[in-house]
Write a protein that binds this DNA or RNA. Sequence first.
DNA 1: TATGAATATTCCTTGACGGGAATATTCGTG
DNA 2: CACGAATATTCCCGTCAAGGAATATTCATA
Lengths: 116, 116
Amino acid sequence: MLETFRALAEPSRFHIFELLAEKPLPVGDVSERLGIRQPQASKHLRALSHAGLVEVRPDAQRRIYALRTEPLRELDVWLERYRCMWEEQFERLDGVLRELQAAPKKPIPRKKRTKR
Amino acid sequence: MLETFRALAEPSRFHIFELLAEKPLPVGDVSERLGIRQPQASKHLRALSHAGLVEVRPDAQRRIYALRTEPLRELDVWLERYRCMWEEQFERLDGVLRELQAAPKKPIPRKKRTKR
DNA sequence: TATGAATATTCCTTGACGGGAATATTCGTG
DNA sequence: CACGAATATTCCCGTCAAGGAATATTCATA
């Protein structure tokens, strides 16, 4: 879970991941389509692989990288716990705002920010 | 999206997020229950806030932090694109393995890893 | 308005990480 | 078995982020 987040938090890796969503690609194609150098592509792919987000299939000297969606399934399972809070969220936010604006118990502070 | 990943990739922040899933808490309680110092708690909460994952409600000198699930909704939307690949994934993985083991076109390499 | 509680911010140091360049490795082929 | 293509690894460097300690800020209250 944390590994998944860490891996996808990197812009290039996220980009690579989405690129591989179309279809599996060898390292060369990835580096070319991302506009990054081959070593970086290899590094990022290794990171993604370490996180279980991609899998490798050797093809001669090439290595075809393809998506692995299992970590995403875990992510989905984790999200499941929060789905029930989605509608509730709006109500609470709305409620809080309403409460704050309708009945300000505290007097308005006179100190003003002069930062800008 | 990237911000969400980056924020939750940090163990302490992930922990805080899950803690706040139970109920909103002031900074002191967060730092105490996480076993981290107050300044770090404030910092992490600021990061989470910057990522839109929590919201603040002032209460006297205290600040009550509560979950915001909207980024998770975005995450869910993003996941949507990959859900259709979940069953497909198993078939493909199975297919590749079957193909590799049934008809190895390439001769088995004689170089053996002596790493271990 | 001085005080204490709760929280935020700053400064500092250190370790992790990404990019660049060079080099090593793997693999098919002649 | 030497060579070239594709990829991986290593070394170096600059940056960024996290933790620790100290300090600043905010707020209610007496």
